[in-house]
Design a binder for these strands. Structure first.
Lengths: 207, 207, 207, 207
DNA sequence: TATGAATGAGCCTTCATTCAT
DNA sequence: CATGAATGAAGGCTCATTCAT
């Protein structure tokens, strides 16, 4: 058993090494330029060996996207779940949204790769606009909680809350993508935009 | 002259056919998979002939993007410039924003190709987040006008107005992209999201 | 008749234009890079028309070489045949050889193209080393005359004179080619080499 | 180790096979017509494999030239350095020059490829006409030694000796190239020309 | 006479993938 | 487990040549 376990572990380690290396290359040159050979070359392995650990290039790309998705998800939810010190509802919202934006930007190019991918397989993990998303997506669910906490929600039914959360989420998404596309903006302008965005969304949330 | 005209026309027709075919392929498999050979194959022509009409692949891609860009631009400005009957400021804003969203969506995949392209050449036409964008981008400039009209602007300086316009623009951008990625949403949900978005942005604009 | 003549003349003019243009291109980029399209482009004609005047690329190249050969030949013989003022036999030889070298260099790249071409067709015009060349090649014949004039020939039979002429000719040829290959030599060095060469060959001729 | 060695050897063998095949093709159709595909085709391999052994076409051509260059160099220097039995200065010169000519001719087409190549990279190894070449080129240096030994040098300064060596070298070069271009000369004529050339150059050297 | 459309072959190169070892 | 040889397809591009007009 010990032997089998070790083998299993080594296999997993190799798979991770491959994925990590692939990730680096994607980050550097974009997913379209990714090639098995380049992965192997950077790992100082031969190209053939990769086929012992993955079925082919598609397999690797798929795993990469899923992994990317998990990073994104975990990056989003964990901090929000731990508001070290409960602040006012306003500030809770501000902090959660800001963190959402900053964490997403921090993901780098992977965020774009994942969130702009429209293959059904990926979308089943990343879709947020369908009715009922608040149940399936932590991010939307969390936003709904914030909205309820902020009170302007008295007159709203559940559907309305969810729609508002989706609108806020996609607004943030737009800013994140835009900042990633217009990648040469001065730091100050980026900050100003994020701040103005958060304030604007707070107004939406309160209304 | 008639002859020359006909020739010129045929030449233009061929160029358009090539661009259209390229457009199809891009819509189907993404711009990265576009290849001269595939264009020719789908047109039932030999690959070489394409070099009679374009200088190379780059040329084609560029034309494709510019064409896309021009559609987008014209889609944006013209309707807003013709508010058939001046309505209330509120409704003006609602209508302009809704049209902006719908027109962008109507562009189809080309909108994504253009607006997510981060090459400097394209960005010089599509960038909207830098300081001073209200002077260079009709869309931002128009939004600024709307914001001033809506009054909540009393306390705002010019910079603030621009920032708000940029925040609203990128929020709409996020929704548009999201709707294009999550392309299988039910019609009703799409409508609900757009409506909720417009109302939310109105609140932002008035505030 | 007048009409036919005119046509014939125009046809010849066009052929010459094509050959001249091809010659330019060869001089600029080497014969290997010559292409029908580039000829046509530089002439501001379409590529197809060239096939009205020549059978194909090979045809053009062949004509070009022959023309080049004729330039070379005419360059060589005419000045030597007109020693304006008869000098001493020594100086006659010096002048003839120097002119041979300078004229050949003046031909530019065409000299190399022609004289290094080893196709039978070209060789039948440019070969100088076979027995009896003094009868068929003006250059060798002329050198033989000079050798006889210079006297050291008393002890030589005809074959020996021809061999000596061929040795001198190929020695000059070697210098010419070398100067064309080592194209960045300082002017002074070139002159020094030519002078030393001529003096050396004079010694050979006198001996 | 045995295994590694074998692999290394096989790799080298393949590289040599490629270079040899390339050499054949160059000899047959000239270096300008050389193509990766043709090399592979003649080897009964696929074109791609060649990129396992060489970085690209340029790499192959370079190796080919260097190989040719080294053959030429080694052919030149070694015999001259081993005058088995010191003969008279006259005969030393005769033997050295004859060997130089015969060895160069023995190189076959490669000699032409190398010595007529005017790219700076190659010229830096093959240039012989610049001032000071006697220090950098064994062939010229050796000729200078011979010239000094032959005595006629009393009245010559160093520059003059070098120039004479260069003139003799380029004369031999001319004969070599000419014999390679006029490749169908009868054997006897070739021999007669070489002999006459050597005698003529001896006169130059002695004078 | 002259054009421009069109083709098919060829070029160099990269790549995913397979396989014997 | 790991390698390196090998292939076949694909990609961008240039070219000689043909042909209808």
């Amino acid at each position: 058993m010990s032997k089998e376990q070790r083998q299993e572990q080594e296999r997993a380690a190799m798979r991770n090494l491959i994925l990590a290396t692939a990730g680096e290359l994607v980050a550097e040159h974009g997913i379209e330029k990714l090639s098995i050979r380049k992965i192997a070359e950077r790992m100082d392995y031969s190209a053939g060996i990769i086929y012992h650990y993955f079925q082919g290039k598609e397999d690797i790309v798929e795993q990469l996207l899923q992994q990317g998705y998990q990073n994104i998800i975990s990056g989003l939810t964990s901090p929000a779940q731990q508001p070290a010190k409960p602040l006012s509802a306003d500030n809770n919202f501000r902090q959660a949204l800001t963190q959402f934006i900053r964490m997403s930007i921090a993901q780098g190019p992977q965020y774009r790769n994942v969130m702009l991918n429209d293959s059904p397989a990926v979308l089943s993990h990343t879709g947020v606009l369908d009715e009922g998303a608040s149940q399936k997506r932590n991010a939307i669910g969390l936003l709904c909680s914030h909205l309820r906490e902020l009170g302007g929600t008295a007159s709203r039914n559940e559907t309305d809350v969810e729609l508002t959360a989706q609108v806020i989420w996609s607004a943030a998404f737009g800013l994140i993508i835009r900042l990633s596309v217009e990648k040469n903006l001065p730091e100050e302008q980026r900050e100003a935009l994020i701040n103005r965005h958060v304030e604007a969304m707070l107004v939406v949330a309160q209304n």
